[in-house]
Simulated scan of single mutants.
Amino acid sequence: MTLSSDHLPSSACQPDRAILRQRLTAAGLRATTQRILILESLMVLPGHPTAEQVHRQVVLAEPTVSLGTVYKTLDSFVAAGLSKRVASAEGPCRRYDSDCNAHHHLYCIDTKEIIDYSNPELDALIRDFFATHGLGNFQPHSFSLHVAGSRIS
């Protein structure tokens, strides 16, 4: 079992921009300055930032980048597989995850924190359940649980 808190700073250092250019190019996107800054911000901000949080980070380096550009770029990252959109109980607020590895999310309704959760045993249970019970005429390819609750002190 692995838990990773939304409020802890990223363990990764500042990403190398040459590597970010390669990731964008490999995903079929042009490596523009704006895209590099947005991807870098998504990776260095703790947890699962909103587009607004990414925008606040990006404009520190490039004040002309609009919030609309950040939204469109983050959506293009999701479409290209560079990030994932994360459900939250905050209504229409979209949050993003730069970790595209298979994992689940625990949502604390008190702190609004999203905690990454990985557990191979849980994944095996879910795969076995759907292999046995199925979903009618639907074949799942991937899954991610979103569990809402409260931290226990």
Rank of each mutant, 00 (worst) to 15 (best):
T33C: 04
S41D: 05
H7M: 12
T32H: 04
R23D: 14
G136E: 02
A51V: 02
N101T: 15
I114L: 15
T73R: 03
S76P: 01
Q57G: 01
L145D: 02
L39V: 08
L125T: 08
D116A: 15
D6P: 01
P63D: 02
L67H: 05
R85V: 11
A31G: 07
T32V: 08
I38C: 08
A61T: 10
T32F: 04
R35F: 11
A87Q: 14
Y117M: 14
Q57M: 05
K112W: 04
V59H: 01
R23E: 15
I36Y: 05
A61F: 11
T132C: 06
P63A: 12
P15N: 07
K112S: 14
T73Q: 04
I38T: 06
P9F: 09
K84C: 09
L74K: 04
T132Q: 15
T33P: 08
M43Y: 00
A131P: 00
L45Y: 04
P140D: 10
L8M: 09
A87D: 10
G28Q: 06
D99G: 04
T69K: 03
Q139E: 09
L74D: 04
P120L: 10
A124R: 14
G91D: 06
C100Y: 00
A80F: 02
Q57R: 14
P120R: 09
V78E: 13
A31K: 08
T32Q: 05
R95P: 01
R21C: 07
